[in-house]
Design a protein around this nucleic acid. Structure first.
Lengths: 185, 185
DNA sequence: ACAGCCATGTAACTTGTTACATGATTTT
DNA sequence: AAAATCATGTAACAAGTTACATGGCTGT
């Protein structure tokens, strides 16, 4: 992801590391502070993969990096591929609720209640923030958080409802007599 | 996350690697196939961190792992901490749209349109899937995807709207004369 | 002189992940 | 006899991230 960001920033003209950090944070309205070390590690990985190339230094002796042809086509690909995160990523919350129900480590309703409390608190925070923000970038961030928090709260309601169904819940229980072999050690 | 899952599964009784994989996939309704290698790597990392402990073999010579006290308290912590992913994670889609607008690598409206198309297609898929699913676990998965896809579509509408505002968009443009020093190489 | 920003870089670590090597047992 | 499943493990890589070492330049 940072790869894509750096390639984007380099697409118009060669730049040096620190400037990439500054520009990145300007664009993300400092919502995503970028550790400067990460810029350099990512840059060297990009160079290793021949997506950028080092081209000497500028007037102030700062090493400049230039995007290569391979880098440009990689960048193009990045923009063309829709983001898959929602479908792909293993959702930690779903996993937690399922595991809680299946293993009885704790009551899944507690997990749900816990998460709901936190999500509602955040939703409140961001709703207030929304009223005070005029900045375009921050608005995009905040609005995204609000929309997904609302989705999460709806999901939590559903999960709770389903959990109330004892039968469904039982279907999750692990049969602890592994493989039906009856070796209860 | 897999750490938490394995610890949960081990919380009731010692188990061997392969069984952990089988149980994990049973719980997640195979929606998240778990590479068996990952179970072993995660197990050895857990052992290194003293969250689990190897305790000989079972009757069929399979090495058993047991959760430790430290592991139990880690697990408890995992369940108590609400999932932060929404707030914390750098959202790739937001980043893409912002970068597109700021660097002119491509038209942010294209990125938005592209993503919307994909999201709508997926939403359709999952909506159909929902009608045919009776399984509890799959229902949780599917419903989560649907809710977040809807949120994403709403966000895309908003982003498009905001992007139409030329002034806002200009505020994103990077001043290419770095540091106002006027060294246009 | 010293604080603080500008700037580069390396080492190390985490989590997730896949590919490969290896072999036993079970089913067809 | 061959294929599938059960089972363990290692090596290696990707991406994200932090901590540390280093030094110049600027303002007070």
């Amino acid at each position: 992801m940072i790869k894509g960001a750096l390639l984007s920033l380099l697409s118009k003209q060669p730049k040096y590391g620190y400037l990439l950090k500054v520009e990145f944070e300007k664009i993300t309205a400092s919502a995503w502070p970028l550790n400067i070390g990460q810029v350099y590690t990512t840059l060297s990985r990009l160079e290793r993969d021949e997506l950028v190339r080092s081209i000497g230094e500028d007037s102030e002796a700062r090493p400049l990096y230039e995007i290569t042809e391979a880098g440009k086509s990689e960048l193009k690909k990045w923009y063309q591929q829709p983001v898959e995160r929602i479908a792909t990523s293993r959702d930690e919350l779903t996993l937690k609720v399922l595991l809680a129900a299946a293993t009885n480590v704790c009551d899944p309703e507690d997990t749900i209640a816990n998460q709901r409390q936190q999500s509602m608190r955040k939703l409140q925070e961001y709703t207030i923030e929304r009223r005070t923000t005029t900045d375009f970038t921050e608005q995009l961030h905040t609005e995204r958080l609000i929309l997904h928090l609302k989705a999460e709260l709806q999901w939590l309601d559903l999960a709770e409802e389903l959990m109330a169904n004892t039968q469904a819940r039982e279907s999750l229980q692990l049969t602890l007599n592994k493989k039906e072999k009856g070796n209860n050690d």
